[in-house]
């Protein structure tokens, strides 16, 4: 019996080795989608979160531990986006290849122009503030380019044989996204300077890129559900400020935004912040969707 179990284990171990594809684990589907652009057929991508899950509040599930244990490359957003669940599974993964500052650990925040880095000493009376700055960085395609390059350089390190393949794919991705960026910038010109409010600070990078003006959030402070006083204030301010739309990330509660939308007479827009929801598969489809829907409402 024990002998048979042992044989089974060795067989499984061997099959892991024979499977040549680079095993990439991304915390969010959108990071996985970017990795797929660069890695093509040489990699297999697993995403831990689903697109419609709030990336801040996942459980450190045992199945994630298993995924990380088998990973050759871990791609995460950095800036403490996943601080509530990634550190314990990373320790439990027992995988030296993907620990922080190893070639197999890609921190996508590297090199980005990070927004809302706290300038004063922090305390939590400000809510669940991210001490390293706003981590919802991927909705600015200029950041996606940096992320793709970052993924490329790590893939080339963990799989040197595929380097020229990855380089070709990266070039292809960059030329496509450069074309799309000018297209998107043309399309989003109509909502430059238009005012909107969001539930959480998830669209701030998108806004910084397109010129959309996000004047407030429905949460009174990051991570803290809206107080009734804050909701009252918003009902007053929305018409005063000329807010055109209420943008709500798909995984937040709809009740308060719905109420605000009715009271203030401003349309509410449910939006994806990630791939793997609303039928969105690629990074391009995600930005396409956002620009199309926001354009319809504010334009």
């Amino acid at each position: 019996m024990i002998k048979r179990l042992f044989l089974l284990c060795t067989a499984l171990l061997l099959s892991n080795h024979l499977n040549a594809a680079v095993n990439v684990v991304a915390t969010l589907p959108v990071f996985g989608a970017l990795a797929q652009e660069v890695g093509g057929e040489r990699i297999t991508v697993t995403s831990l979160a689903r697109g419609n899950q709030d990336p801040h509040f996942l459980d450190a599930k045992p199945s994630y531990v298993v995924a990380l244990n088998r990973a050759d490359l871990l791609i995460h957003g950095g800036l403490d986006l996943e601080v509530g669940w990634l550190p314990p599974i990373l320790v439990q993964s027992r995988n030296g290849k993907i620990q922080p500052n190893s070639p197999g650990n890609v921190n996508l925040a590297e090199g980005l122009n990070i927004l809302e880095v706290p300038k004063t000493a922090l305390d939590r009376s400000m809510g669940d503030v991210h001490p390293l700055g706003n981590p919802h960085s991927w909705l600015d395609p200029r950041n996606a380019k940096l992320m793709a390059a970052n993924i490329y350089q790590h893939l080339a390190k963990v799989d040197p044989e595929g380097k020229s393949y990855y380089e070709g794919r990266l070039k292809d991705f960059l030329s496509r996204i450069n074309q799309k960026i000018s297209e998107w910038e043309r399309q989003s010109a109509s909502f430059r300077g238009k005012k909107a409010i969001t539930y959480h600070k998830s669209f701030n990078y998108f806004a910084a890129w397109t010129g959309l003006d996000i004047v407030d959030t429905i949460e009174s402070k990051p991570g803290i559900p809206p107080s009734s006083k804050h909701v009252d204030d918003l009902i007053k301010h929305i018409p005063q400020e000329g807010v055109k739309a209420i943008l709500v990330e798909s995984f937040y509660p709809k009740k308060v935004p719905q109420f605000l939308s009715e009271k203030a007479g401003v349309p509410m827009l449910l939006l994806p912040t990630d791939t793997d929801e609303y039928g969105i598969k690629t990074y391009f489809e995600l930005i396409d969707y956002l620009i199309r829907e926001i354009g319809k409402t504010t334009g």
Binding site: G78, L79, D80, L86, N101, N107, A109, E110, V117, L132
Partner: peptide
Amino acid sequence: PGAQSRSVGLWKY
């Protein structure tokens, strides 16, 4: 300020 997260990794503020 934000770039400091690079060397510090996941566990530190």
